[in-house]
Simulated scan of single mutants.
Amino acid sequence: MQAGTREMKHTRQRSLIMLRSFATGFVAVTLLAWGPAAAAAEGDQVGQRFASSFAHEAKGEIDEALNDMLIILRGDAKHYVATLRSGWLYYIGGRYADSIAMYEAADKLAPSALEPRLGLMLPLMASERWAKAEVVGKELAKLAPRDYTVRSRLAWIAFAQGRYKEAETLYQAVLADYPSDLEMMLGLAWTWLREGRKPEAKGMFQRVLSIRSDNVQARTGLQSL
Rank of each mutant, 00 (worst) to 15 (best):
A3K: 03
P36C: 00
K198E: 12
W34A: 15
E168F: 03
T11A: 12
S210H: 09
A58P: 03
Y148E: 12
L182P: 03
G60T: 15
G4W: 13
R212K: 15
G60F: 15
V46E: 05
L188K: 02
G137N: 01
S52G: 15
F159N: 02
V216N: 01
G119H: 03
A105Y: 06
L143P: 02
A133V: 06
R74Q: 14
K9M: 15
G43Q: 12
R153N: 07
L154T: 06
A144V: 14
E128L: 00
S52V: 01
M1P: 12
F54M: 12
V216A: 06
A101Y: 02
E128P: 01
Y171I: 05
E128V: 01
D44I: 09
Y178L: 07
A167T: 10
G162W: 11
G119I: 04
V136T: 01
I157Y: 05
L32I: 14
M18A: 14
G221W: 04
Y91E: 11
P179C: 01
S21I: 12
A173M: 06
N67I: 03
Y90I: 00
T11Y: 12
W156F: 14
Y103C: 01
H10F: 13
L66C: 01
H79K: 03
A133R: 07
Y164L: 10
V135A: 09
L140Y: 07
L193D: 11
D214S: 15
L140R: 07
R12F: 15
A189Q: 10
L175T: 14
G94I: 09
A41E: 09
A58M: 10
A82E: 01
T149D: 00
T149W: 01
I92V: 15
G94C: 08
K78T: 13
T191F: 04
K165P: 05
W88G: 05
V46F: 09
R117W: 03
R6E: 15
K202D: 13
M18G: 11
A105K: 15
Q13P: 09
L154W: 05
S213M: 03
D177N: 11
F50K: 06
I157T: 02
K138Q: 13
P111E: 10
M8F: 07
E166P: 02
M18R: 13
E42C: 02
A28E: 00
I100K: 07
A101E: 02
A97I: 06
M204D: 04
D214A: 15
M185G: 00
Q172A: 14
Q45E: 13
R194Q: 13
